[in-house]
Design a protein around this nucleic acid. Sequence first.
DNA 1: CCAGAATGTGAGCTAGGACTCACGTTCGCA
DNA 2: TGCGAACGTGAGTCCTAGCTCACATTCTGG
Lengths: 233, 233
Amino acid sequence: MPRRPPVSRRRKPHQDRAQATCEAILTAAARVLVKNGYEAASTNRIAREAGVSIGSLYQYFPSKEGLVMAVMERHRTRSLAGFEAELVRLASQPLPQAIRALVRQLLTTKLENPRLHQVLHELAPRMRQLGQVDPHEQRLFRLVRAFLAPRAEELRPKDLDMAVFVLVHSVETLCIKAVADRPDYLTNEAFLDELCALMQGYLQPAGASSRTTPKKMTGRGRSSASREISARP
Amino acid sequence: MPRRPPVSRRRKPHQDRAQATCEAILTAAARVLVKNGYEAASTNRIAREAGVSIGSLYQYFPSKEGLVMAVMERHRTRSLAGFEAELVRLASQPLPQAIRALVRQLLTTKLENPRLHQVLHELAPRMRQLGQVDPHEQRLFRLVRAFLAPRAEELRPKDLDMAVFVLVHSVETLCIKAVADRPDYLTNEAFLDELCALMQGYLQPAGASSRTTPKKMTGRGRSSASREISARP
DNA sequence: CCAGAATGTGAGCTAGGACTCACGTTCGCA
DNA sequence: TGCGAACGTGAGTCCTAGCTCACATTCTGG
């Protein structure tokens, strides 16, 4: 029941105190979203949880939706930063190793606060109003595309945009579904193996490949059930 | 704002008239959900759209959530039936052809009412209360597992359950995301090629395979952008 | 130290939506 | 033809949650 179009004539925090209030509201919002879900996450409850009055909340956020958007914004920006750093670091690595490192990065990121990732992911479709395209998603797509473009020769897919679409959405969703239905997968090295196999098999169906270590996935598939995913190999 | 736990002491339709009312409500609900989304789909609006009083709606459905669940139930049952029929039909086909037919089946099903598929898919996480597992998803998993099990020897993945998890979720999501962001993909044969490549590359990374036509995906990748997906090859 | 800006407060307004109930209407059947 | 059961109706109840506003408190610069 939004009363009017979000007028966004909200204060910008200038003093440290205000900054802290904003921070408290955002983290409380994330916490309540995780604990109670979107419906039950009333603005009053979030304010209370933040130790702040409801009035303060509406000084810095134009509406409940605006607040949730801000939470998503912050969260996705951070996640993307981590992913981009890894992408840069792996720019010149051979593809199989790069893929593995990237997937591992995704999984460990999700592992920090799985539920928040899940909730925000499931909330995303409801937030983009009227055909708004998610700028973070666009950015993610461009990053992955830029990563793949130099290796286009070694790759099976001809349509790079379509390949990025396929890769990003499938891996992202598999991580989220794992959070929701199979949390054990998140720390199961065999699952990481499968995600890598999915991407690898899609991009380079063993045979094409290149000058760069075309090793055909050795030592995978047996007795990997108990290995655990850790920070870096 | 549900007022009390859904008491489900609702009438069961006995006469044809009542059956028709139920039907009208269900289809109206689907229509309104597609047109306005879950939030804006008030029960009053759905009743009006169905040409039925709000009282009638609550005679057959215990709550708004119950109604939406019923819509999902019907929709998923139908989709699953189509998929299962195709699965049975393809039981003895070589894997690559079977995969292609199945993916085609999924895409054409989605094509019948793309938005409804999308909306219900995005709504699903909100509906399962308190760790309820979706019986349709479970059934789908079992079906695919039963389809793959006899060919386990030819397949790369050792953990069949995990493989089903990966396959089902990735393909399902890619179809839904295509509906939402790239509707052109749904009728683009190149997209179907990519979905098949994804699954094929995952299950049989060219080299393993079998006695059954191990052809290595010929004639794919160029000038397929304008081919259109039709009923059957 | 004080003026004014920035910040914080929370009781209360209001819209709108889920759901009920007392009452009509139609149907099946003897 | 009449009676009970099934069915249909919609004005109205109740309640929640988003959001405002008039006022209190704290900070900053001169």
